[in-house]
């Protein structure tokens, strides 16, 4: 067995195990940690496909920020595992339907991909070939408009997040640092002169 094949199967096994644990573990924080492991293994598999840009961005975006936010949320919330399981039997048919639909879709994609030519069409590039440069070139030339559209969607998301959490002028007692910097000693303390009491 070639070393690359061994690495592929190892990463796939870890990925499948981690993905299964994400949905079966009772503790949501442990589930989120297994999600991190799943992302790392998937990034390793992409690295094997010479898609180093996508692999590293997967770690940067999903492990570095998205899952951290997941963790924040599941740590803050007090999640009761038993209450989460209540609707399991009721929602089972719907879940199975969605899952089988997704499996069918993936099957179609892979079937059409591999039925024509079993050999991978991705050309084996030399070390000089830069994946990042190629993706950047395509994004800014051929796919410029979809790229701009995606950024507009993201911008809308940012504006919506701010609009949802900003509820008018806040009545908090936060201080203005620029005023703090220019404060004088005389504005903070007042020295009183009191005549000493006379002993009689």
């Amino acid at each position: 067995m070639e070393f690359k094949t061994f690495v592929f199967y190892f990463l796939s096994a870890v990925l499948l195990y981690a993905a299964a644990r994400v949905v079966t573990l009772r503790n949501p924080v442990h589930a989120a940690l297994h999600l991190v492991l799943a992302f790392f293994s998937a990034s390793g598999i992409w690295m094997l496909l010479q898609a180093e840009f996508l692999a590293i961005v997967l770690v940067l975006v999903y492990v570095g920020s998205v899952t951290v936010l997941f963790l924040f949320v599941v740590m803050m919330l007090d999640i009761d595992a038993n209450r989460m399981r209540e609707g399991f039997r009721k929602n089972m048919p719907l879940g199975l339907g969605v899952a089988s639909l997704m499996i069918a879709e993936m099957g179609f994609v892979f079937y059409s991909r591999f039925s024509g030519h079993v050999e991978s069409a991705a050309r084996q590039a030399g070390p000089e070939y830069s994946n990042v440069k190629e993706i950047g070139r395509l994004l800014f030339t051929e796919y410029a408009y979809p790229f701009e559209l995606a950024s507009v969607v993201l911008l809308t998301g940012v504006v919506a997040a701010v609009a949802l959490t900003l509820r008018g002028k806040q009545k908090n007692k936060s201080v203005d640092p620029s005023e703090q910097v220019f404060v004088k000693a005389g504005e903070r303390i007042r020295i009183l002169h009191m005549p000493p009491e006379k002993m009689e």
Binding site: V29, L33, V36, E52, F53, I56, V57, V59, L60, V63, G64, S65, V68, L71, F72, M75, S130, N131, V132, K133
Partner: peptide, 23 residues
């Protein structure tokens, strides 16, 4: 080729130590 990107991705994992230690 993507050295700088790798650096940013790997160092962003360090935040887990902090979050998990606290939790």
């Amino acid at each position: 080729n993507a050295g700088l990107l790798y650096l940013m991705a790997i160092t962003s994992v360090g935040v887990y130590g902090v979050v998990l230690a606290g939790w």
